[in-house]
Amino acid sequence: MSFGERLKRDFSTMTLVLIPVAIVINIVVGQIVAALKLPVFLDSIGTVLVAVLAGPWAGLVTGTLSNVIWSMVANPDAIYWTPVAAIIGLIAGLCAKYGLFREWWKVIVTGVLVSLAAAVASAFISVWLYGGITASGISFVTIYLVESGRGLIESVFAASFIVEPIDKIITCLAAWGIIKGMSLRYVSRFPRAENVSA
């Protein structure tokens, strides 16, 4: 199957209708988690959901639009972190393609891989745009590492690798739980249903 045909199959009508719902899940769940004052973000569950059910490219589109729209309706700063959201969708989709979303322990592996990619991407943006010190909580970890004698760039990357995995593993497990909660008939309507059925 050529790349164009694959894309056409991935972006079926079911996918197109799922993407807006997934983006809103990202935004609303992110807000509920913030309201409960939990120390995680969980703002990419919808992105991972689309990536698994409709492939990496649909995941990438979901992540990108998610941050663009979030910045339009609530938080203008979110736009700077769009590449991170896009990469999360892409990597989660690739992991699922190679069978890493079939059992719960494989989902944890996906979570780790996604978090590594997200950590690299967000560290780059943090260094390039903010000089490594942003206004979010993660910067306290960075500052602690800087003050204990490490270089700035090294500290930014280390801080990202400390904070991201927990969040992304929970995110992937939540998406997995949602898919397991759907009926088989419903899951099979999506273009990459084979990603989750053994």
Partner: peptide, 20 residues
Amino acid sequence: LMPMLAPLVFGSLVDVEERA
């Protein structure tokens, strides 16, 4: 978290097929 997220997520996924 679970009792709040589950009804929200599954409830909104139900509408997807109909809208498609």
